[in-house]
């Protein structure tokens, strides 16, 4: 099951030399984020939903981790627990070796929903986290403008968030989260509401920022291309209960560019991921309708058989 289906594709586990060297360097770095036997059960004693079970994972400094899995496997729950917005039922989260007790500025988060504060200008939004750490206003503004320059939105500093497009808002949200100087940036499907072109541009922006800033990223997505394109390692979750199915080291060298999406390694990894996620499908009721035969009566009067 774990072998690629198409014979001419390379094995996704064969890392090119440069990638293998890079992975080795990363693995020698200290762990920034540790997930220690984490479990999460929703609901009371009557009908508990096990969202996560015994998750065990460590993220190294400056690593880019993507988390994928079928819908409802607990990706959002995991990242919300990492952020401290939700509490695990068992196990714990460590950041730099210290257990997490709630949300804090050491873990920034970018949400799927647009969450810029609508009553603050773009610049003030970016200043928010800086000011919360006790920095005085003038300095905060200076730093915020630097961030806006970095994401190329300095001319929108005085605009209200609703005057920005969705992609721009998410860029500001990334800048806002990074400006607070977190150790880890958590992102829950931040680009899923954007169109394909904007999404690709945002992915490139994100990787560009990541290269220049001292940040470790945990990125949730359901888009396999996105996961392979961005990640150093991909954490594949299986649903009901949410468990780590496999951790994949992405065999693509950096810096990444869109052309790599047609490379053999990319396709092999994708084929494997698809197989993994489909294999956890049949027992997931969301995909139970996959091989249902549709029986739709003819509702058109067009008589040519072009379709």
């Amino acid at each position: 099951m774990t072998t690629p289906q198409e014979p001419n594709l390379p094995d996704y586990r064969d890392l090119p030399a440069d990638v293998a060297a890079r992975m080795k360097v990363i693995k020698e770095r200290e762990l920034v984020l540790e997930i220690d036997h984490l479990g999460k059960v929703f609901g009371g004693r009557k009908n508990p939903t096990v969202a996560l079970e015994d998750i065990e994972f460590g993220v190294h400094k400056r690593e880019f981790i993507c988390v994928v899995g079928p819908s409802g496997c607990g990706k959002s729950t995991l990242v919300r627990i990492l952020a401290g917005l939700e509490e695990g039922t068992s196990g714990r989260i460590l950041v730099d070796g210290r257990p997490v007790t709630g949300p804090g500025p050491d873990r920034g988060m970018v949400f799927q929903k647009y969450t810029l504060f609508p009553w603050l200008t773009v610049c003030q939004n970016v200043m928010f986290g800086i000011e919360m750490s006790g920095t005085e206003k003038g300095e905060a503004q200076r730093q915020a403008m630097q961030w806006l320059q970095m994401i190329g939105l300095e001319q929108f500093a005085e605009a209200w968030p609703h005057q920005l497009s969705g992609g721009m808002q998410q860029r500001v949200a990334i800048a806002r989260a990074l400006a607070a100087q977190p150790r880890v940036l958590l992102m829950d499907e931040p680009f899923s509401a954007l169109d394909a072109q904007t999404r690709l541009r945002m992915q490139n922006y994100l990787m560009e920022i990541w290269r220049k800033v001292d940040i470790t990223i945990v990125f949730i997505t359901h888009d396999l291309d996105e996961a392979i394109y961005l990640a150093d390692r991909i954490l594949v979750l299986q649903p009901r209960p949410g468990r780590v199915e496999e951790v994949i080291e992405v065999p693509l060298s950096r810096p990444r560019r869109a052309a790599q999406m047609t490379a053999g390694e990319f396709l092999a990894t994708k084929a494997h991921l698809e197989a993994l996620i489909r294999s956890s499908g049949p027992n997931a009721d969301d995909s139970a309708d996959e091989d249902v035969e549709l029986d739709i009566p003819l509702l058109t009067l067009v008589s040519d058989k072009a379709e």
């Binding site: 952020a83 949300p103 804090g104 500025p105 920034g108 988060m109 949400f111 928010f128």
Partner: peptide
């Protein structure tokens, strides 16, 4: 008030 804004503020260190 949109709870997502509260959560966003919390992850930025506001309490």
């Amino acid at each position: 008030l949109d709870f997502a804004l509260i959560e966003a503020a919390r992850t930025l260190g506001a309490k």
